[in-house]
Design a protein around this nucleic acid. Structure first.
Length: 188
DNA sequence: AGCGGGATTTTCT
DNA sequence: GAAAATCCCGCTT
C-alpha cells in the first residue's frame, strides 16, 4: 500500500505541493503541529544537492522511497529535515525551511527559548521546535511520532518562487517556494 | 535594519 | 583540511 502518491514526483513539483500540508509530532504525550510554509527542492542532477555526488551513508535516505524523512546535521550544531520524493533509487528530497505553529506553541517556545516567528522560521529552528534530530533520519512519515498530513494544494497566487538559500552553487535554479501569506517564512 | 564573526562537528576531498 | 541546505549575538548605521 502506497501512501503519499503525490510525493513520488520530482522534488521541484512536490515542493510547492507541500505548502499547506501539516507535520504532526508526538512528544511526551503532547502534539506539536506545524503547517509547512516554505520548502526547497534538491535532486541528484543538481550541484547543490547532497545527492549530487552519489549515494553515501549520510544521504542514503534520499535514494530510498518517497515519504520518508531525511535528517542531516550541519554547521556542527544544527539539524535540518527533508521529505524524500521521487522514485526509489532517485536521490531527491524537499527541505522543509519553515512551518507555522498550529498546536503545541508553548512547548515549541520552551524548546526554542524563543517566541513568535523565531520559533520556526528556519530549517534548523523548526527541527529544534519539533525535536527532530538524527534519531528520526529514515523515519516513515505515515507513522508516529512524526506524521505528514496531506492537504489540497494552496492557491498558486499565494506561492512565491525564488533561488534557494544558503547554497554556494546552483544559485540560478528557482527551487524555493513559500506561502506569501505567512509571517513564518525565513526570508522574503 | 544590516553586516560580520563565532560556535562546533560531520563529511568528503 | 575545508566547507557546510544555519543560527545567534554584538556592533554600526
Amino acid at each position: 500500500m502506497k501512501h503519499f502518491l503525490f510525493l513520488q514526483a520530482s522534488p521541484e513539483i512536490v515542493a510547492p505541493r507541500l505548502l499547506g500540508c501539516l507535520l504532526v509530532r508526538e512528544l511526551n504525550g503532547e502534539q506539536l503541529i506545524g503547517r509547512i510554509v516554505e520548502t526547497e527542492a534538491y535532486h541528484q542532477t543538481d550541484v547543490a544537492s547532497h545527492s549530487y555526488r552519489g549515494e553515501t551513508p549520510r544521504n542514503s535516505v534520499m535514494f530510498g522511497p518517497a515519504g520518508f524523512l531525511y535528517v542531516y546535521f550541519t554547521y556542527g550544531m544544527h539539524y535540518c529535515c527533508n521529505i524524500v520524493t521521487g522514485a526509489e533509487g532517485e536521490g531527491a528530497a524537499v527541505l522543509i525551511r519553515a512551518i507555522e505553529p498550529i498546536e503545541g506553541q508553548s512547548l515549541m517556545e520552551q524548546r526554542r527559548r524563543r517566541t513568535g516567528i523565531e520559533m520556526t522560521n528556519g530549517p534548523a529552528k523548526l527541527c529544534q521546535a519539533l525535536a527532530i534530530d538524527k534519531a528520526l533520519n529514515g523515519h516513515d512519515l505515515t507513522q508516529s511520532p512524526l506524521q505528514l498530513i496531506e492537504y489540497p494544494p494552496i492557491d498558486q497566487k499565494f506561492i512565491a518562487i525564488s533561488p534557494r538559500i544558503g547554497i554556494s552553487q546552483g544559485k540560478d535554479v528557482l527551487w524555493r517556494f513559500y506561502d506569501t501569506r505567512s509571517p513564518y517564512v525565513s526570508r522574503v
